[in-house]
Simulated scan of single mutants.
Amino acid sequence: MSDVPHSTSATGEAGFGDYVALLKPRVMSLVVFTAFVGLWVAPVPMNPFLAFCAVLFIALGGGASGALNMWYERDIDALMRRTRNRPLPAGLIEPDAALGIGLGLGGFAVMLLGLAANWFAAGFLAFTIFFYAVVYTMWLKRSTPQNIVIGGAAGAFPPMIGWACATGGLGVEPLLMFALTFFWTPPHFWALALFVKDDYSNAGVPMLTVTHGRPAARRQIFAYTLLLVPVALGLGLTSIGGPVYMTVAIVMNALFLRGGWQILRRTDAESEADRHAAERGFFKLSLYYLFAHFLALLVQSGFGGW
């Protein structure tokens, strides 16, 4: 997901919007939504005020991860068209300030989540921040084309954290919510990489499209699309599934399989405009795909958890 454009003051100094952009608000919105769904559909009721606080602190933890990611990646962000206007490469926020915000906000979020919910959930949030900032950002992203596959776990943890806030533990349901997001991440990001390949190549990021080429990326997109189907349908057979969720899952997975098949059939012999149209279409579909599944879980619950 790309980040919202920052807003600058007339003097060229950082404005409020730049500090918001530092926290990757679009990524944070996914964290907030999936964490909220995980908390809501959990079988143990949670006080509404404490639940609101828990989701807020998970969001702040996600923002801390974004700030630490931008602090470390400011060199490669400056080389990519998609990211060169972020606050750090644009010179609007100092690296030390971004690091301080990331560390301070992360510690604050973990501590308060422990007080609002439980320390198991707080420890899980701390591990998620570490995984995204250190394991993915500092190690995997620049060292392996599997960066998105392994690193995608960080973005898949929030529904598990939400569930843990309510229950103090885990179960089959949050593991399948994790798996849904985990297997969705590679086709989502590789579809993006197909039409911004030069960005990753220029920045020296070993994205699959750069190291193995577009045909390999297309095959992997379709393979992960196939893996998604049993996970998505399997979630519908658990205690949080039902007819509403299964209907949405069947429709969305049929569309996603169709889109993955169309991507697989593309070749570099086609015009760039035609390829990019299909790739952008699949990327947009992937955004609706994940949102639709988690929204269906929310609707299926009947908003009766409390």
Results as ranks from 00 to 15, higher is better:
residue 32 V to Q: 01
residue 246 M to K: 13
residue 171 G to K: 14
residue 17 G to K: 07
residue 80 M to C: 01
residue 104 G to K: 08
residue 22 L to I: 09
residue 92 L to Q: 01
residue 30 L to I: 04
residue 32 V to R: 05
residue 149 V to T: 14
residue 19 Y to I: 07
residue 75 D to T: 08
residue 160 M to H: 10
residue 221 I to A: 02
residue 175 L to E: 03
residue 115 L to K: 11
residue 123 G to C: 09
residue 190 W to H: 12
residue 27 V to G: 02
residue 91 G to E: 04
residue 94 E to D: 13
residue 181 T to C: 11
residue 154 A to V: 13
residue 236 G to V: 10
residue 125 L to E: 00
residue 259 G to V: 06
residue 134 V to W: 15
residue 89 P to M: 05
residue 205 V to S: 06
residue 102 G to F: 10
residue 105 L to H: 04
residue 173 E to M: 12
residue 60 L to K: 09
residue 165 C to V: 15
residue 77 D to T: 14
residue 60 L to W: 00
residue 98 A to R: 10
residue 26 R to I: 15
residue 134 V to P: 12
residue 264 L to F: 15
residue 50 L to G: 08
residue 235 L to K: 04
residue 67 A to I: 11
residue 24 K to N: 06
residue 66 G to M: 02
residue 270 E to S: 11
residue 107 G to S: 13
residue 258 R to P: 06
residue 76 I to T: 02
residue 47 N to S: 09
residue 8 T to D: 06
residue 52 F to R: 02
residue 241 G to P: 04
residue 61 G to L: 12
residue 227 L to C: 14
residue 289 Y to C: 01
residue 255 L to V: 05
residue 135 V to C: 00
residue 243 P to F: 14
residue 254 A to S: 06
residue 141 K to Y: 03
residue 186 P to W: 02
residue 234 G to N: 13
residue 11 T to C: 06
residue 76 I to H: 09
residue 304 G to S: 08
residue 114 G to Y: 09
residue 19 Y to T: 00
residue 133 A to Y: 05
residue 171 G to H: 14
residue 78 A to Y: 05
residue 75 D to A: 15
residue 304 G to E: 10
residue 25 P to C: 10
residue 16 F to N: 05
residue 45 P to T: 15
residue 210 V to H: 02
residue 1 M to P: 06
residue 92 L to M: 01
residue 195 F to D: 07
residue 41 V to T: 15
residue 140 L to T: 09
residue 126 A to C: 14
residue 59 A to Q: 02
residue 58 I to P: 07
residue 296 A to M: 11
residue 229 V to S: 00
residue 237 L to D: 08
residue 264 L to A: 00
residue 201 S to C: 12
residue 141 K to L: 03
residue 216 A to W: 08
residue 190 W to D: 03
residue 204 G to Q: 04
residue 44 V to G: 05
residue 117 A to V: 03
residue 305 G to M: 12
residue 230 P to M: 01
residue 262 Q to L: 15
residue 287 L to K: 00
residue 265 R to K: 15
residue 36 F to V: 07
residue 59 A to G: 06
residue 97 A to G: 01
residue 183 F to T: 08
residue 118 N to M: 10
residue 214 R to F: 13
residue 25 P to D: 00
residue 109 A to F: 04
residue 248 V to R: 11
residue 126 A to G: 14
residue 255 L to K: 09
residue 98 A to E: 01
residue 176 L to F: 15
residue 141 K to F: 05
residue 34 T to G: 10
residue 222 F to T: 10
residue 186 P to C: 07
residue 275 R to L: 13
residue 75 D to P: 05
residue 84 R to P: 07
residue 196 V to P: 06
residue 137 T to R: 04
residue 286 S to V: 08
residue 26 R to S: 07
residue 50 L to A: 11
residue 206 P to F: 14
residue 196 V to W: 09
residue 208 L to Y: 03
residue 29 S to Y: 03
residue 210 V to D: 01
residue 232 A to T: 14
residue 202 N to F: 13
residue 29 S to N: 05
residue 266 R to A: 13
residue 52 F to H: 01
residue 271 S to T: 03
residue 170 L to P: 09
residue 112 L to G: 02
residue 155 G to K: 03
residue 299 V to D: 00
residue 8 T to E: 10
residue 242 G to W: 15
residue 165 C to Y: 09
residue 14 A to N: 06
residue 78 A to R: 15
residue 125 L to I: 08
residue 207 M to I: 15
residue 29 S to W: 08
residue 74 R to Y: 15
residue 36 F to H: 00
residue 60 L to S: 02
residue 51 A to P: 02
residue 208 L to T: 01
residue 283 F to L: 12
residue 133 A to N: 11
residue 65 S to G: 12
